[in-house]
Design a protein around this nucleic acid. Structure first.
Lengths: 348, 348
DNA sequence: GTGAAAGCGCTAACAA
DNA sequence: TTGTTAGCGCTTTCAC
């Protein structure tokens, strides 16, 4: 048990197996890859297999990839993992890939465009077969920089949660238009007219889409003149608490708050609680795209299906890897309003 | 623009750069790897660099890894990503790796031991430099199968969230002993004696530790004879709702519920709400290790730091990759009770 | 200062 | 039915 024994010894290679079985490397390759197109003596097959087993042979996918020019690996870029949204997408991607044997390289951009670009670079150095990128409000403006290059060199690529590039790359998004519309119709049918929309960021397409959908739905409901939009603060964290206080101090105050996402909704609920305003008695609150949080708070909210988005993205990426000439496509996944406890008939 | 142009053309290699610069591949290698130990004419350096730039050369890490016998890649095994716990660990791992340029291969076991083993196999075929595995109640019994092999071949490996193997492998866990103790002391200091513990699974070490800690803390608080432990159902989803109903129907009923995790706590809150029992007026509820959910519900709970666990695991793995002879170590990270709105003075 | 050549572990023509 | 050989893109020893 000298120091040697603690080193990881070189893993056995075809050469070792070949020597042990008394055949050539080619034969080893044929046997271990189960090449049915090649006729092989059952006895040689056996000899090779048992030699491989005895030596504890394990295929080396690096060498394989080098030869094939294909890594059976995709890169998955996420803005952050500790958000249930990205995490669910990541989970869906893995599920979509599961049947094929594909590996996933994970790149975590932590909302930083430089890190993001570096991760893409690492993916490319690794010669991934394709990339799935979950877009991010904070880096979307720099997406073009690297996406451009991917498209030029025709590297398969699917963008999730933003449709800005839908003519040039595959995109998978939620149907925010109908999601928002359902919210407005829900509130409107409960008699709400003074609806305030605490809006998300306008940089990512989903933010813009939701805002546009809100306004269009308000018009169709004939309440466009009474709704109010509270924009987010752009690059700094929005102080929703004070916004809500200001909003509810108006007269007439809104009877419903439609929040851009469930985190905002949670903050709004806190503010209302502090002000002694009852939900849904005095004011209704609707969230958007929350998972655990929305459910835990029994928040009326729009359910998105991030896991499904991930699955769709993965399937599409595989298709595109198979045929790089597919035209770019936009996948719009349905969402649905789930009324829970925070919305009710408008007061008065 | 024939079909050719749509194919991904072979990426430029050293051979191409060498030809363009009129030097040998060796020189290209020296220049592009910034080998300061090799004396090189500034002019050749320039020629090589500009040729590389012109051709859009990008290093091929597969080939590199093959030569070096090192991939600068680690495998990260998670039971599932759509739980904020694993996701936060994953995030921490990435952060811990960030300074070095390491890649992360993601393996998602979806609570299935077969899938898990397969992912480990994929990691090994990819010749990862090490593995970080987040343990899982549902597969822990089969962990031994593959861990054994990793240890034998001395592949660096760090286990997160279970200490069962702490003598044989590096483990990173939360200090559940003190976490639970803080809960019992908190409740006890509020006058609670009849505390019910809705326990987690006993398969993973953290489950067992929490239970043991609960009982020991109850003894120290002199309330051991009054506490009650409600075990989970083992392999099926525990119907906590009915358990809580049964529990609160007893006489005397407990005045505090200590839940194994925040999801259980959320279910308990629902059940209590349905029964018209007020929290924390009639009964206090304490959760454990929740993040978004616990915070959103304003649940008194014990905060763990999964992100920090991931960081520690990553640092340790890097250390061990650097020196495989380190003795296995157990890292126990602090946790702290955060009293929020669901715990209060015991009634009467 | 720079290059030729061998080799990392595998695959695939082409021979035999 | 199996072996020989070249080559994937890179690093490195050893010459020049």
């Amino acid at each position: 048990m000298g120091r040697e024994s603690r080193q990881r010894r070189r893993a056995p290679s075809y050469a070792d197996v070949a020597r042990a079985a008394g055949v050539s490397q080619t034969t080893v390759s044929f046997v271990l890859n189960e090449r049915t197109d090649i006729p092989l003596l059952a006895t040689t097959r056996e000899r090779v297999l048992s030699a491989a087993r005895d030596l504890g042979y394990r295929r080396n996918s690096l060498a394989r990839s080098l030869v094939h020019g294909r890594t059976q690996t995709i890169g998955m870029l996420v803005p952050q993992l500790d958000s249930s949204f990205s995490a669910a997408i990541a989970q869906g991607v893995q599920e979509g890939l599961e049947s094929e044997d594909y590996r996933v390289l994970l790149g975590h951009a932590r909302h930083d465009a430089t890190v993001e670009a570096r991760q893409v670079e690492l993916f490319l150095e690794h010669r991934v077969d394709g990339i799935i990128a979950v877009t991010d409000e904070f880096t979307i403006e720099h997406l073009e920089d690297w996406l451009q290059e991917l498209l030029m060199q025709n590297t398969p690529c699917v963008l999730v949660d933003d449709s800005s590039f839908c003519g040039r790359a595959d995109c998978v998004v939620s149907d925010d238009f109908h999601g928002v519309r359902q919210v407005v119709e829900h509130l409107s049918s409960l008699g709400h007219r003074r609806i305030a929309h605490l809006a998300g960021g306008g940089r990512v397409s989903s933010g813009r889409d939701r805002l546009a959908a809100f306004q269009s739905a308000a018009e169709d409901a004939g309440i466009a003149s009474e709704v109010v939009v509270v924009p987010s603060s752009g690059y700094v964290l929005t102080p929703w608490n004070s916004r809500v206080r200001e909003l509810m101090g108006r007269s007439p105050a809104p009877t419903a708050l439609f929040c851009a996402n469930d985190t905002v909704a949670a903050e709004a609920l806190d503010a209302l609680d502090e002000m002694g305003i009852r939900v849904p008695g005095d004011v209704s609150v609707v969230g958007y795209a929350g998972f655990e949080v929305g459910r835990a708070l029994k928040l009326t909210s729009v359910n998105q299906h991030p896991q499904e988005m991930g699955r769709v993205a993965a399937r599409r990426l595989l298709d595109r890897i198979g045929n790089r000439d597919l035209p770019p496509q936009l996948f719009t996944l349905p969402v649905e309003l789930e009324p829970r406890r925070t919305s009710a008939q408008a007061p008065n």
